[in-house]
């Protein structure tokens, strides 16, 4: 019994670090600028996807720590105000109370993701206003949100496929 509990706890901690690893990958992609001539933007809201799709069975306490590390790294690497993204991601995770259920269907997940992104956007704008002394560029934010929303289905599909392959989903037929 004690051994089972220990294994369960270790697994939940490992899942939190898996979320961190996935988040770091998305942070690196978020740091790249997409330059298509007239349309120049980036995926700055991409790490919101990993916070929303955080592993469900991950330890909540360790998840908070991992999200803190993820946000700090993003703040460092993007050269933005230190703590801006960290506060946004921590707030989002606390509000959501954990990652999205594995059985959630895509339309619902997409809607929740848009809401999560809007929440982070509002918070980032307020914090940005406080840190920079003026409102951040709204057009850039809108473009980044649009680009991130376009990429979200791919991230959702990757998560679903990996859950089906590694057996992390309760019943794959329920939510395709």
């Amino acid at each position: 019994m004690t051994r089972d509990v220990t294994v369960y706890r270790l697994r939940s901690v490992t899942l939190a670090f898996q979320g961190l690893a996935g988040g770091l990958l998305l942070v690196f992609i978020a740091l790249i600028n997409l330059d298509m001539g007239a349309f120049k933007t980036g995926f700055i809201f991409l790490p919101v996807a990993i916070v929303y799709l955080w592993p469900v069975r991950a330890s909540y306490t360790w998840s908070l720590i991992c999200i803190f590390l993820l946000g700090i790294f993003y703040d460092f690497a993007s050269n933005g105000p230190l703590g801006l993204w960290t506060l946004c991601y921590l707030a989002l995770f606390i509000v959501l109370g954990g990652g999205a259920r594995t059985t959630i269907r895509f339309p619902a997940a997409f809607l929740w993701f848009l809401l999560s992104m809007s929440f982070v956007c509002c918070l980032a704008m307020l914090l940005g206003r406080f840190a920079l002394g003026q409102w951040p560029n709204g057009l850039e934010i809108a473009k980044s949100m649009l680009t991130t929303a376009v990429v979200f289905p791919l991230i959702f599909w990757i998560r679903r496929t990996s859950l089906i392959i590694f057996g992390g989903i309760e019943d794959p037929k329920v939510a395709i």
């Binding site: 306490t61 908070l64 105000p81 230190l82 703590g83 914090l127 840190a131």
Partner: peptide, 27 residues
């Protein structure tokens, strides 16, 4: 424990945010 960790992390991040606003070479 969860609540305390969450409050601690939010507080420490807020302190970093405010400190960075004052001093650009922070961390």
């Amino acid at each position: 424990t969860r609540r305390n960790v969450a409050i601690f992390l939010v507080l420490i991040t807020s302190v970093m945010f405010l400190a960075d606003r004052q001093q650009t070479s922070f961390l």
